[in-house]
Design a protein around this nucleic acid. Structure first.
Lengths: 228, 228
DNA sequence: ACCTGTCAACTAACATGCCAGTTTAGAAAT
DNA sequence: ATTTCTAAACTGGCATGTTAGTTGACAGGT
């Protein structure tokens, strides 16, 4: 039984249920194809069906669950085509963002990115891969935020939901974190130099690494993918 | 009183209510700042509060309405900053899309775009601006679709919701439709020539026209904008 | 005249009962 | 043993009663 808890979250009940379920889906605790029973969720969370229904509806519009009317609600499975689409969209937004940031970045912003990058280096040296994972996310969020457009980070996050979930399946690979740090350094270098073209291609190359590592997952974990 | 009707739409009640309200908001029949009363909507549509609540929740996550907890639900007002963000995001996606389409387009796809463009020319000559408006939308949707990534068109549409609404306020401008057709022709020409760089800059220039025409609206219609 | 505290009337959020469509297991027929 | 039909037990969608938080007006004090 998956443990779910909405204590410690704030906001309305529906919001809390949504966040709790979303986290469990994104960290792959709730596996693709798993059936979500409204009644069971209500009992487990100690709330009524209203907030649960609302949460499931939102997850459905996020593409994280599939609601089959009058039948069942399932955690959505991956489709490689869908993941490629998500990657294309994410790349479109992050590349546009890094291009803008390369033009308008301030000294203070460069300092923040440098600081994050030094942290990444240390975490990789210490082989703290969980910590590196988080620092990696923050590096990208910093760049997205430096566009001055808060919605850009939100949109990129929204489009990357399935990618983030699939990423959980990628086996830790010898030397990959260190490569990623090198790629991040190239991005920062281009931003610092205000070289828009270099920033674009550095980001394109970096993001391309993820989808190319996701591609093999369809053979490794066919049970999580749509039969096509 | 705004007329609302969900007959003629299919799907679940919540879906129909959502579409009906969404259309009224996007065509500016429901004005920014207008209060949406659940009770009134239920009575008017002849449904209970459940599907209406669901619809409002979805509109809220689309950013088309603001739900003030325990208080009221309002049609969201514009913020120029938000519109600039939407424009940035839309540009990121549509430019990436046109770049890809320039590379992979087929002869049949070129034919479809040419056909649409000829239609645009005729509609402008006939001064059928409503018809042109729709053909314009279809031109962009065709390009987005030709990426082979259905989600791209959906994402672009999602990001452009506020822009589409604001566009309704732009006064018909002498000669603008004909200019737009010229810009569309430049885009098609670059796609035909498989000139990725030209396609990107043609699309960038074209989309930049819209936001530059939206900018003056804040002075012309201050009542529709957030006080900042 | 103006600030302040209280209260009534409103709202969205939540709980729960009900209904209709889907699924599935088992019985019946072949 | 296999297929087909049927019915019961699920599910999600809808209606509606209940709760709790916000707001705005009004009364009373300064």
């Amino acid at each position: 039984m998956v443990t779910l808890d909405i204590t410690g979250l704030d906001g309305a009940l529906g919001q809390r249920v949504y966040v709790a379920l979303r986290n469990r889906i994104l960290d792959m605790t709730l596996k693709p194809g798993a059936v979500l029973r409204k009644g069971a969720l209500c009992e487990q969370l100690g709330v009524s069906r209203s907030p649960v229904s609302e949460a499931l509806a939102r997850l459905s519009s996020d593409g994280l669950v599939d609601i089959i009317p009058q039948s069942a609600t399932r955690v959505s499975q991956f489709s490689m085509a869908g993941l490629r689409e998500d990657s294309f969209l994410r790349e479109a937004v992050e590349v546009a963002a890094v291009a803008r940031v390369a033009e308008i970045r301030t000294a203070e912003q460069l300092k923040q990115l440098s600081r994050n990058l030094r942290l990444q280096t240390l975490l990789v040296e210490d082989e703290d891969f969980q910590g590196f994972f988080e620092a990696d996310l923050i590096f990208h969020e910093l760049i997205l935020g430096f566009t001055g457009f808060p919605k850009v980070a939100l949109a990129a996050g929204q489009m990357s939901l399935q990618l983030q979930r699939a990423r959980m399946l990628i086996l830790p690979e010898q030397g990959r974190p260190s490569e990623a740090v090198t790629e991040h350094m190239a991005i920062l270098k281009a931003i610092k130099a205000q070289d828009v073209t270099a920033a674009r291609s550095a980001m394109t190359g970096h993001l391309g690494q993820l989808i190319s590592r996701i591609e093999p997952l369809e053979r490794q974990h066919p049970e999580f993918f749509h039969r096509n």
